[in-house]
Amino acid sequence: MARTREIQKLYPQPSQNLFLARDLDRPPVLECRRLGINFGGLEAVSEFDLAIGPTEITGLIGPNGAGKTTVFNLLTKVYEPSRGSILLNGRDTMGMTTADLNKAGIARTFQNIRLFRNMSVEDNVKVAMDNSISCGLPSAIFRLPKYWKAERHAHVRAMELLSIFGLQGLAGAKAGSLPYGAQRRLEIVRALATKPSLLLLDEPAAGMNPAETAELMETIGRIRDEFQIAILLIEHDMNLVMGICDGIAVLNFGRIIAKGTPEDIQNNPAVIEAYLGSRKERS
């Protein structure tokens, strides 16, 4: 808490441009301030300011190699930031591990799918509920009533979540044997099973055809409405990003070059230059 106060002293009022948020009345779920990381001499990400309001869908876009996934890895402490701070629900996340951050409310999916391939679909979800299962080692080993109650509860909740995404029929199947689309959905289910307040989706539409992408768009909207959580997504599919995001941040060479609503971004000359090159280069 002391550090939180210290940060608030340093940056008394979060500047207006920190936010993409529609509603500025409620405190943001996530606040990044001057976030940065160096890999050797390379500034992979620098001066990254972003705030995400509750139940807001934010898009993070940018050309390949702009540092989008690095931002995700910073937010989940896969990398320790070199500079700046991340506040989650108003709490500073300094010193937290990846697992701590998940408990504090950040869940993510991965660009290259990372499921527990040799485990069943249901177990994949149950692993994610581990922290909410109240059953100690003795009750598990001696199979005390507490164990059965916890397991039954976990089963019911896992099946509930799976059925929202149409995966209940595959609960017993090995996760690695699932078709690609189902694996992507399972990753989202697994992330949601940790009861996050912020969901990070790393290229959820990668490898999907237009019909699947349209379905995904609808699903993401539904997740926000049903679970009442904020979503930050990296995506290259502009139809999806422009279609569902409340706000968009554009990253290039590790720096945010534009922030705003989808309309702002579409007409922003800096963004057009980053994606298409400057007029001079093009001619």
């Binding site: 990372r114 527990f116 040799n118 994949n124 692993v127 992330a191």
Partner: peptide
């Protein structure tokens, strides 16, 4: 889960 994918296991807490 740790055996199958340590990074993913950590990411789900």
């Amino acid at each position: 889960a740790v055996r199958d994918n340590e990074i993913a296991a950590e990411s789900v807490g």
